[in-house]
Amino acid sequence: MHGYGRTTASLLFLAGLVVMLYALFQALPFGAAPMQVGQEIVSRAPGETGAANIVTAILLGYRGFDTLGEVTILFVAATAAGLILSGAGAGDLPKAPGGFILKAAADLLFPFLVVLGAYIILHGHLTPGGGFQGGAIMAAAFFIPLLASPTSPLNHSTAALVEGFAGTAFIVIGLASLMWGEAFLTPFLGKGTLGDLFSAGSLPLLYLAIGLKVGSELAGLMARIVEVGGKS
C-alpha cells in the first residue's frame, strides 16, 4: 500500500472510529456514575483504613495488590531497559558538562526536591499525592545533577540496592499479615486518628516503600537512557 493510500484509508477508518466511539461514550451515563463499589468504599474507607485520602485508601488498601503490580511494572521496565541497553555503545558519549547555571541550580535544587518528595510520600494518605508522585520528585532530584554533569554517572548499584530493599519491604509488609492468619496485604498497626500524620496503620509504610522504589527505579531508568542516548 502506498503512502497516500494508507493515509487516506487511515483517515477514513479514524473518522469512523471517532464517530462510533462518540456514539458509544454518549450512551454512558455521564455525571451519574453508578458508583456501585465506589460509594461503598467512600463510606467505609475512613473506618476501615484510617486514611483521609480515599484514593490512597483504595490504592494501598482496597486495591493494594494493583499497586504492587504497578510498582512491579516499573521494575520490569527498568530491568528490561537495562537488559536492552546493556550492550549499547556507551563510551563515545558526548560528555559535555552542563553550564554553570545548571550546575549551581542542580546543587541548589537537590535538597529541596528531596524534602518535597519525602513530604509528598509521607502525606500520601492525607492529601493528594503519595508514593508515586513523591518518588518521581525524588528521582528528579537525583536526575538533575546527572544532566548537569554527565561525567559522574549515577551509582547504579546503590540505586539497585534501594530498589531491591524497597520492593522486598512492600512484599514483606504484605506477607507479615499473612503470618498472623490474615490475608495478604491486610493493613495492620493502629489506625490512629483520621487526618493525623501517624494514622492509617501500615499504609504510610507501604507508601514509603513505593516512594523509595519508584524514585530509585525512575532515576536509574532515566540515567541509563541518558548514559547511552548521547550518541543518537
Partner: peptide, 12 residues
C-alpha cells in the same frame, strides 16, 4: 482469598 481482608467486591 480477599486480599487485604477487604471483602469482594470492594477489594481484589
Amino acid at each position: 482469598t480477599a486480599l487485604g481482608g477487604f471483602e469482594a467486591p470492594l477489594g481484589i
